[in-house]
Simulated assay, not measured.
Amino acid sequence: MSRLTELVGTTAQPFRFLVEEGKVAEFARAVQATDPLFHDAAAAADAGLSGVLAAPTFSTASAHWSGPASSPALGLDLKRVLAGGGEWEYLSPVVAGDELEVVTTVESVLEKQGSRGPMAVIRVRTDFARDGEIVQRYTSNIIQFGAVDEESSA
């Protein structure tokens, strides 16, 4: 069993992520989301929301605070890491003013021999919770090429 497979089931240090109205507006502009719910507080209130609506993938901005691939617990060599895709699950709207607790868990590690040598596919789940209720979930694959023993990932 490699060091990475021993991490299955472990959880990274949780952190809090404040959904700020200005950042929601910047993100909406960046992804060309033009619906008034993304930038107009009155329109959001008329729709029954407590703040402007965050675009669906806005919570990706939290990855700049504590991205799973850069987690020290994984000990990955970022020069040999590739994003292997991911899926979003939306359970409740996220709006400006929300404070989300973000928790990332290693779900599985698959080590195999690829055409370019050994590789590991690490599946991680990131839960975004508001007041203890999960509002979004992002499950992704991180691929590291090369040996995954302790010497090569230092």
Results as ranks from 00 to 15, higher is better:
1 M>A: 00
1 M>W: 03
3 R>Y: 05
3 R>I: 09
3 R>W: 07
4 L>E: 05
5 T>F: 08
5 T>Y: 01
6 E>A: 13
6 E>V: 08
7 L>G: 10
7 L>Q: 09
8 V>E: 10
10 T>W: 15
11 T>L: 04
11 T>E: 15
12 A>H: 14
13 Q>G: 02
14 P>A: 06
14 P>R: 09
17 F>R: 08
18 L>Y: 00
18 L>V: 12
19 V>D: 04
19 V>N: 01
20 E>A: 07
22 G>I: 03
24 V>L: 14
25 A>D: 09
29 R>P: 00
31 V>A: 10
32 Q>Y: 07
32 Q>M: 13
33 A>T: 06
33 A>K: 03
34 T>S: 09
40 D>E: 01
40 D>A: 07
41 A>S: 01
41 A>F: 07
42 A>G: 00
42 A>M: 03
43 A>I: 03
43 A>K: 14
43 A>W: 03
44 A>L: 01
44 A>Y: 11
47 A>I: 01
48 G>F: 09
48 G>H: 14
49 L>Q: 12
52 V>L: 07
55 A>Y: 06
56 P>E: 03
57 T>N: 11
57 T>K: 04
57 T>W: 13
57 T>Q: 04
58 F>A: 10
58 F>D: 05
62 S>T: 08
62 S>M: 11
62 S>A: 13
63 A>V: 14
64 H>W: 15
64 H>K: 00
66 S>L: 15
66 S>Y: 08
67 G>H: 09
68 P>V: 02
68 P>N: 01
68 P>A: 02
69 A>W: 14
71 S>N: 13
72 P>L: 03
74 L>W: 07
74 L>F: 13
76 L>Y: 15
76 L>T: 13
76 L>N: 08
76 L>V: 03
77 D>L: 13
78 L>W: 08
78 L>D: 05
80 R>S: 00
81 V>N: 02
82 L>Y: 02
82 L>C: 07
82 L>W: 03
82 L>Q: 03
84 G>S: 10
85 G>I: 04
86 G>S: 04
88 W>F: 10
90 Y>C: 04
91 L>H: 06
91 L>M: 02
91 L>P: 11
93 P>E: 07
94 V>F: 07
94 V>T: 13
95 V>L: 14
95 V>S: 12
96 A>S: 08
96 A>D: 12
97 G>T: 09
98 D>Q: 12
98 D>G: 06
105 T>A: 04
105 T>F: 02
106 V>E: 06
108 S>L: 03
109 V>E: 00
109 V>H: 11
109 V>S: 12
111 E>Q: 02
111 E>N: 00
114 G>L: 04
115 S>M: 11
115 S>N: 02
118 P>D: 06
118 P>H: 09
120 A>N: 06
122 I>Y: 15
122 I>E: 13
123 R>T: 15
124 V>E: 13
124 V>P: 14
126 T>A: 08
128 F>T: 14
128 F>R: 13
129 A>I: 05
129 A>S: 08
130 R>G: 06
131 D>E: 15
132 G>D: 15
132 G>L: 15
133 E>M: 00
134 I>R: 13
136 Q>L: 10
138 Y>I: 14
138 Y>C: 12
138 Y>Q: 12
140 S>L: 02
143 I>K: 01
146 G>T: 01
147 A>P: 06
148 V>R: 04
149 D>S: 05
149 D>P: 01
151 E>W: 00
151 E>I: 04
152 S>H: 05
153 S>F: 11
